[in-house]
């Protein structure tokens, strides 16, 4: 039973990732990514990481994917969503991907991890302890980073600072 559910979730993950990679429409790619992210949250639950799974859904689905969809809708507005790269074509991409895949399989074969039937454990309290004891410095650095990020993103989109320059001879380049 557990294996069956695992296989289903893994299949959904792979499907989502492949849709992201091979779909020609950007909105379909984004939705494939959404599927993959949710399925990866399911995999986290298999690995007894409930807090990380919920964070994954909260941040990716509720935050990142909404932002990405916003970006897609604001910039392409429904059209111009077919955008594969003709210069960096599929052949070199496939080559590089294959190299990375072989490398990964080599690493897996030499990982030395063994079969393990772990029980489900509640992790929230322990993660809290780890974040505020061992990893307090990175934690604080992340918070500083986020403050910088909020201010930076705000500044970057302020109207006065965007230098409105003439678009390179396009019909729609009014603004």
């Amino acid at each position: 039973m557990k294996d069956g559910i695992f296989l289903c979730i893994a299949a959904v993950t792979v499907f989502g990732a492949l849709v992201t990679a091979f779909s020609r429409s950007i909105i379909n790619a984004a939705l494939g990514l959404l599927l993959a992210l949710v399925a990866i949250a399911g995999l986290y639950i298999f690995l007894s990481a409930d807090f990380v799974a919920v964070s994954q859904i909260l941040i990716y689905v509720g935050g990142v994917m909404v932002l990405l969809l916003f970006g897609i809708m604001l910039t392409s507005g429904g059209d111009n969503i077919f955008s594969n790269n003709p210069i960096m074509g599929a052949v070199p991409a496939t080559l590089i991907t294959t190299i990375f895949g072989l490398l990964g399989i080599y690493v897996v074969n030499t990982s030395g991890l063994t079969f393990y039937q772990g029980a489900y454990r509640a992790t929230t309290r322990d993660i809290g302890h780890f974040l505020l004891r061992e990893y307090i410095l990175p934690f604080e650095l992340v918070s500083v980073l986020i403050v910088v990020l909020i201010v930076g993103a705000g500044v970057m989109l302020r109207k006065e600072l965007v230098i409105v320059r003439q678009a390179p001879q396009k019909k729609e380049g009014k603004k």
């Binding site: 993950t13 792979v14 990732a17 492949l18 992201t20 990679a21 091979f22 790619a29 993959a36 990866i40 955008s83 594969n84 790269n85 960096m88 074509g89 599929a90 070199p92 991409a93 496939t94 590089i96 991907t97 990375f100 895949g101 990964g104 399989i105 897996v108």
Partner: peptide, 14 residues
């Protein structure tokens, strides 16, 4: 690995 390869392929071809 599969997910990572799909990601690399996406970055390279988009």
């Amino acid at each position: 690995i599969i997910i990572f390869c799909a990601g690399i392929f996406t970055v390279l071809t988009r």
